[in-house]
Simulated scan of single mutants.
Amino acid sequence: MSGEETPQSAVETPLSLEQRVAAANIRVPARGNRKLDRLIDAVNADVQLKAWWHAAAINAERLEMSDHSWVHIQIVTNIGLRLARLLFRRGVVPSVVADHGLTERDAEVVIAAAALFHCVGMSIHRADHEQFSLFLTADKLPKLLEPIYDEPTRTIIVAEASHAIISHRSKGAPFTIEGAIVRVADALDMAKGRSRADKLLPNIHSVSSKAIESVKILPGREKAVRIEIEMSNSAGIYQVDEGLGTKLRGTPLAEHLEVVARIDAEHEQRLVPVFRL
C-alpha cells in the first residue's frame, strides 16, 4: 500500500438517513409530570416527526441559517419549561389554568408540544413556515396525545399549542402565557455556537449573533425571571434588542421578565456596558 492510500478502517462511513433521523432523541426534565413524560416518549418513538426535524435542519443549512435541527427543538423545549416553572413558582397563572380549569402540568404539556412542533414547517419552506407547522401539527399532535388525554381536553391542548406555534412568527401576537413563553424561548436559543454566521455578507445579523457569549435564565428579584446575557462585543445589543426584545415586547410575559445584557470585553471601548430591556 502506497503512502498516499488511506486504510479502509480509517474511512468514516457517513450515517444513513435512517441513522440520522433515529439519533434525534429529545430529553427534558419531566419532574414528575407523567403526561409530559408520555408525550416525550411518544415523540421520540415517532419517526415521521423526527424526519420533519431532519428536513427542517437541511433546509436551514441550504439557506445558511442558524440551526433548526432537533438540537434547536430540544433547547427551545427546555428553555420553555425552565421559564414556565420559574414563572409558575412566582404565582404567574398559566392561561390553560385561568381559562379552562386545567393544571400547571397541562400547561407544561402545551408549552412542550408547541416547542416540539414550532418549526416543523421549515421542512417545507422558510417562508410562512409557521403556518406550514400548523397543518402538520393538526394531523400529528392529536394522535400523539390520544393515549394521554380524553376529549374535550385533548382538543384544548392541541388548540393552545397551535396558538403558541403561530405566535412565534415575527409579527405573532400571543395572548396566552404559554404562547408568550414559547415565543421568548425560541428567541433565547442564541448562546455562543448556536448561530451560523452568514458566509456571504458580514451583516449586522451575523455579527451580532456571534457576539453573544452566554445566556442564563435565573429566578428574578423584582420580577419572576431574570435573563442574563453576556456579550463579547457591543454588536450583540442588536441581537438582544431586535431579536429577543421584539419577541418579548407586548406579550403577557413582558411584565414578568427582566433582561440584562452585559459587555465584558477589554478589547473594545465600552459604549454601553449594561443594556436592559
Rank of each mutant, 00 (worst) to 15 (best):
S2T: 14
E4T: 12
P7T: 07
Q8A: 15
A10Y: 04
A10P: 04
E12F: 10
P14I: 12
S16G: 12
E18A: 13
Q19S: 14
I26P: 12
I26F: 12
I26T: 09
V28W: 02
V28G: 02
P29N: 10
P29F: 08
N33C: 03
R34F: 03
K35W: 05
K35H: 11
R38S: 12
L39C: 06
V43N: 09
N44H: 12
D46V: 06
V47I: 15
L49T: 05
K50R: 15
A51G: 13
A55L: 15
A57L: 08
I58K: 14
A60D: 08
E64L: 05
S66C: 03
D67H: 01
S69C: 03
I75D: 14
T77D: 01
G80C: 06
G80M: 01
L83M: 04
L87T: 08
G91N: 10
P94N: 07
A98K: 15
A98N: 13
L102V: 04
D106L: 04
A107G: 06
V109N: 01
V110E: 11
I111F: 08
A114H: 00
A114T: 07
A115Q: 08
F117C: 09
H118T: 02
V120D: 07
M122D: 09
S123T: 10
I124Q: 15
R126Y: 15
A127T: 13
D128Q: 14
H129W: 07
E130F: 10
L134G: 12
L134D: 11
F135L: 08
T137K: 02
A138Y: 02
L141R: 00
P147W: 10
I156N: 04
A159I: 02
H163T: 02
I166V: 12
K171M: 12
K171D: 11
G172I: 03
F175H: 15
F175Y: 14
F175L: 14
G179C: 07
A180F: 10
I181S: 05
V182N: 01
R183V: 01
A185R: 04
D189Q: 08
A191I: 00
K192E: 10
K199I: 12
L200E: 14
L201N: 15
I204S: 07
S206A: 06
V207H: 09
S209K: 15
S209A: 13
I212P: 07
S214T: 12
I217Q: 01
G220I: 03
E228D: 14
E228A: 07
E230A: 10
S232M: 09
N233Q: 07
S234V: 08
I237G: 08
Q239W: 03
K247H: 03
L248R: 01
P252M: 05
L253P: 08
E255I: 10
E258I: 04
V259D: 07
A261K: 03
R262C: 02
I263Q: 12
I263K: 01
A265N: 13
E268L: 05
V272T: 11
V274M: 05
R276V: 10
R276Q: 06
L277P: 00
